[in-house]
Design a protein around this nucleic acid. Structure first.
Lengths: 174, 174
DNA sequence: CAGTTTGTAAACTTTTTATTTCACAAAGTT
DNA sequence: AACTTTGTGAAATAAAAAGTTTACAAACTG
């Protein structure tokens, strides 16, 4: 293939990787996504290793990360022994996948928080003799916890708003 | 102040920091934000240094990063010589600020990309004698560039959708 | 003006993350 | 069954990021 053409293709890969890094995804993962994307068809670890110049182990790690983020999938092709990996060909869908898996993780981690804090604070109000100031503080924190929960519920609705594709009704693709 | 109360407050700070890290912001920056947030009023570098147990220089760095991200601001108070820093007290607004400054950066970096690629590819079509395959490839890449641009335009509209607060009309706070 | 305090740049150290090398089990081949 | 290939742990190394110490200019104080 023409050298300049090749260079332009690499330019695309770099841009895709750069875009990905906005999500906090490592540039290696970004480049792997870009490479598979530009390749237009699934690739093996060996091919990826060849294309990136990195070790196969690293490719294995990168690909697993992408599977977890829902931006790549393992595909089967009869007659091919090696694992094949493919990526979403739609930019928008990739955005949505990263956005949702990122925030869903945060939302899950937060689930127990409310209960813990509330329980602890209520116990404090009951069991201990608090100064007026401290009692005020407890009430402030309870209010804070409530706001916090509401905020996380909002985040959950936001994730759903993206995941369901509703976002595209309000911010249309073209 | 009551020890358990203090502990609960720290628990909040940690949660805020955790939430922040979902944006790829370092945990130190996250903790600083959490600390100022829970403090309910502006703080100095010295106070932050005291509160985090970290050096003042690190606080200076963290605070500067926060200013750049639009999640903190320098405030002036007469009679106080030291710089005071405050943070947004609204979770939603902080989300929006981080989201927009994050993606705005990516959008800006992308601006030149389209032109460069298009120019290069068109030049290639004109100046060089390409194989049929290569010519096809050039056209594919031109199409890709177009889609890329459209995607970034969508991102820009998305940022605007958040920044303007329009998002809250469709994913309401309560 | 001599002496402090404040914020931050520069150089250094520590910690964390990314990546490779080596090893090996599981599956496939002959 | 002996031999290969494949994917991935585990340990080691390299690279990057986070954080500290030192130093110093600029702004304040008395």
């Amino acid at each position: 293939m023409n050298a300049k053409l090749n260079q332009t293709e690499e330019f695309f890969v770099d841009k895709i990787a750069e875009n990905m890094s906005t999500y906090g995804v490592s540039t290696t993962v970004g480049r792997v996504l870009g490479i598979i994307y530009m390749n237009r068809k699934p690739m093996t670890l060996n091919e990826l290793s060849e294309a990136t110049g990195m070790s196969k182990t690293r490719m294995s790690q990168a690909v697993r990360e992408m599977l977890e983020l829902n931006i790549a999938e393992k595909v089967f092709e009869k007659g091919v022994r090696r694992d094949l990996y493919n990526v979403e060909q739609d930019y928008y869908q990739t955005f949505v996948s990263l956005f949702t898996s990122n925030w869903q993780k945060a939302i899950n981690k937060n689930k127990l928080f409310e209960k813990k804090v509330k329980a602890e604070l209520l116990l404090l109000l009951e069991q201990e003799t608090l100064s007026a100031d401290d009692e005020q503080k407890v009430n402030d924190l309870l209010k804070e916890a409530k706001e916090w929960v509401e905020y996380y519920q909002w985040l959950a609705r936001l994730v759903e708003f993206f995941e369901s594709g509703e976002i595209f009704n309000h911010v249309p693709k073209t």
